[in-house]
Design a protein around this nucleic acid. Structure first.
Lengths: 128, 128
DNA sequence: CTTCGTTATACATATTCAGGAATAACGAAG
DNA sequence: CTTCGTTATTCCTGAATATGTATAACGAAG
């Protein structure tokens, strides 16, 4: 435990840059507008796990509407869909992530882990 | 010039990932909310050059209001101001970037150039 | 004391975005 | 043919955000 015990209390040595950190966002864009980001990748992963857009949305505390629009956007802009779905039938319907969807997940996560490493290794050198 | 001349026209070899690229944003945050990004750094640089918040805002096609709020936010949240200003006098008033402001510029640009290099070297490997 | 350009601030409006509600379509299962 | 849960779609509303307008404060210069 970091800190120095004095009179039954702890005095913590605060970092001079307390609360100050580098952060950022990363995404893949198509024709200048965002196509794939961390949120959409997580959505795809959850759909793959549970086979339902609605359940995936609930898990992420996201409205079904927004989730569906994300999927719809990716499906429409790529040359083949990332998710194929059908309504009716057992369970009321279902959604499955295609091979292309799996590629999207893998490709983005590759860059994203590198990006997170970039953020971790670049810490603020001077006090602001 | 890339391309293959055929019958007095050029057929360009298109990249399979045409229009598809990695992009992102980088910023420094304090207590979980954004403090410094590329826009604010450019604003600081222009203020340093022309000595005026208003003129810097005009150069960036930004409202004076927004520019002033950015400066105000940084001044209020850091322990010393990045810009000191006065109204009245020669030219109507002026604004100068402090030593702390110069540190902010230098520190952010250091990370930002590294980040741009990161984006450039990580190109999409597969076709989506 | 008037003019001038800027800093500083309040107020109102416009635009964008997220979310909820409601409803239709669908097909398996009973 | 009724029930069920999900996909698919539209409409409306409130929040957050960006922008525009107006105006006061200020001090040098003429």
């Amino acid at each position: 435990m970091p800190g120095k015990e004095v009179d039954h209390e702890y005095l913590f040595i605060m970092n001079e840059n307390m609360g100050l950190e580098l952060n950022g966002k990363l995404w893949i864009e198509l024709n200048g507008t965002r196509l794939i980001g961390p949120g959409r990748v997580e959505l795809l992963e959850r759909i793959r796990e549970c086979g339902s857009i609605r359940q995936a949305a609930i898990q992420m505390s996201m409205s079904y509407r927004q989730a569906w629009q994300m999927i719809e956007d990716m499906n429409a802009r790529l040359d083949s869909p990332v998710v194929v779905s059908q309504r009716g039938g057992k369970g009321g319907g279902n959604a499955i992530v295609t091979e292309k969807g799996l590629q999207v997940i893998a490709e983005f996560k590759l860059f994203y882990t590198k990006f997170q490493q970039f953020l971790e290794k670049n810490t603020l050198a001077i006090k602001l």
